[in-house]
């Protein structure tokens, strides 16, 4: 599929109404849902169905790519997106008539399937290997960045993502020692192929981490986001932090609005996260410009500890 086809497909899939009616243009307030989920239990399946119903995604006959965050071989920790959340999304999207693929390209570890195995994906998701693509080793094409804010002018990207009708970013809600917070936008680092750029994908660091996140967002501005904040990570995230229960799943079709909302839940000031302001501007991340449904932020806000170097990000 050509890049142009991909863009048209995405627009078609997402141009339909979300929560409340949503005309294609002009810009309306993006809608973000906060759903309580106290634990990784069977209740998540029903919650995920309700979440997708809230957003009224029309994905019948569409190719949906779920992109979780797989980082490390620590199944007991809160590093990776929990497989139960991903499986619930697989089932919910299938019930809506979508064909579903799970895809990820970890940034440090090469054995992606081994990593998924250790994280419980093989155990929880029936036929996992048949619906999984390692984005580090997928077929690639070069995509030009139209107005890059980083030093990048183009990126090789995997066909599985370029050919999708809807890319669903499914990160873990975590602090990040370089970026401040890693959420649905930072999670897109995982679509950049290690087979081309290596492990880590250091080209993104040299081009500017915040700027690269913003540039990846510009390529996929309408991806859907489902953030696993049931148990996130605080402190020295995204790998060496501590589990932090926030008890929420945060979702929406505007990644900037979703990530800004997650920051508020984590008691981080989204205006101090550079990639959010680069991608959305200060106006785009203001609370008054985001339509909040489900739980309100104050009722679920949970103070995520920050390492000393990130203390200035604390929401005051």
């Amino acid at each position: 599929m050509r890049r142009r086809d991909f863009l048209l497909g995405s627009a078609a899939a997402l141009g339909l109404s979300g929560c409340g009616s949503r005309p294609a243009a002009p810009r309306v307030r993006p809608c973000v849902d906060i759903t309580r989920a106290a634990a990784y239990s069977q209740d998540i399946y029903g919650a995920m169905r309700r979440i997708l119903a809230q957003h009224r995604l029309n994905v019948r006959g569409r190719r949906v790519v779920l992109k979780p965050n797989l980082v490390e071989f620590e199944p007991e920790s809160s590093i990776n997106t929990n497989p139960l959340v991903v499986h619930a999304a697989v089932e919910a999207f299938r019930e809506l008539g979508a064909s579903v693929v799970i895809a990820e390209g970890p940034g440090h570890r090469r054995g992606t399937l081994d990593l998924a195995d250790a994280a419980g994906y093989f155990q929880i998701i029936p036929g996992f290997e048949d619906i999984f693509t390692d984005l580090n080793l997928d077929e690639v094409s070069r995509v030009n960045l139209q107005r890059p804010v980083s030093r990048l002018s183009s990126l090789y990207l995997p066909h599985t993502v370029l050919g999708s009708d809807l890319l669903v970013s499914m990160p873990k809600m975590k602090t990040h020692h370089w970026a401040g917070a890693t959420l649905s936008m930072k999670n897109l680092f995982g679509i950049v192929p290690g087979g081309v750029y290596g492990w880590p994908k250091n080209v993104l660091h040299w081009a500017g981490i915040h700027q690269s996140i913003a540039d990846l967002h510009s390529l996929f501005p309408h991806h859907f986001a489902i953030v696993d904040g049931i148990v996130g990570m605080d402190g020295n995230g995204p790998i060496q932090g501590r589990p932090k229960a926030a008890g929420v799943i945060v979702s929406g079709r505007d990644p900037v609005a979703v990530d800004a909302t997650c920051c508020r839940i984590m008691q981080i000031d989204p205006a101090r996260i550079e990639y959010l302001t680069l991608a959305g501007g200060l106006e785009g991340i203001e609370a008054k410009n985001i339509e909040q449904i489900g739980e309100n932020i104050d009722s679920v806000a949970t103070r995520f500890d920050l390492i000393m170097e990130l203390r200035e990000l604390r929401k005051v």
Partner: peptide, 13 residues
């Protein structure tokens, strides 16, 4: 050596 030219050196490459 780097994985990709113009970036830092890493262990595997």
């Amino acid at each position: 050596w780097p994985w990709f030219p113009g970036t830092a050196a890493w262990v595997t490459p």
